[in-house]
């Protein structure tokens, strides 16, 4: 399948915010459609994974390189470009992501958890996509109300 055709079936997402679910010590990554669509896509991740994404969203500077900064640093040393990340599958409540890398015309893909893929994409300014199929099967399609309740409760 040509790359352009492949991309047509993808929906681009941007990280809207990271919400703390204090009941379970997890974080919810809230992704919004880049085309302005009102619906959101949510991924539950661990606390440290959520913090890694939040630091990138906030453009926070840490005294020492954190794990995903290190991956980015490897890329800068070797000339590896993170082209895009795609949320490719969901099994039960587990999402699967693929990271597309490129170096000197050679493309490689690696399997990743969405949290690592997103944490790296944000640091490398690479676009984040979800397949139409995974978008349709996303959990919490009507969770916006619930989410706002959760956020209000924390304040």
């Amino acid at each position: 399948m040509p790359a352009s055709q492949e991309k047509e079936s993808l929906i681009q997402l941007t990280v809207d915010r990271v919400v703390e679910d204090s009941n379970t010590d997890t974080r919810i990554i809230v992704l919004a459609r880049s085309d302005g669509g009102a619906e959101h896509f949510m991924v539950w991740v661990g606390a440290s994974e959520g913090e890694a994404i939040k630091r990138a969203v906030d453009a926070a500077i840490t005294p020492r390189p954190m794990s995903h900064d290190l991956v980015k640093s490897f890329g800068e040393h070797f000339g590896i470009k993170t082209e895009r990340v795609v949320l490719t599958d969901v099994k039960g409540s587990t999402y699967y992501a693929t990271v597309f890398l490129e170096n000197k015309g050679v493309g490689r893909t690696i399997d990743a958890r969405p949290s690592d893929a997103i944490a790296l994409a944000l640091r490398c300014h690479a676009p984040i996509y979800v397949t139409q199929d995974v978008w349709k099967r996303r959990s919490g399609q009507n969770l916006n109300a619930w989410l706002s309740k959760l956020e209000t409760k924390e304040v």
Binding site: V99, L101, I110, D111
Partner: peptide, 19 residues
């Protein structure tokens, strides 16, 4: 682990380009 953890991901990243 069932899914690659961050350092497994890091290793995959290096392996992908034979670093």
């Amino acid at each position: 682990p069932p899914r690659p953890m961050t350092h497994d991901f890091m290793k995959s990243y290096l392996d992908a380009f034979d670093a």
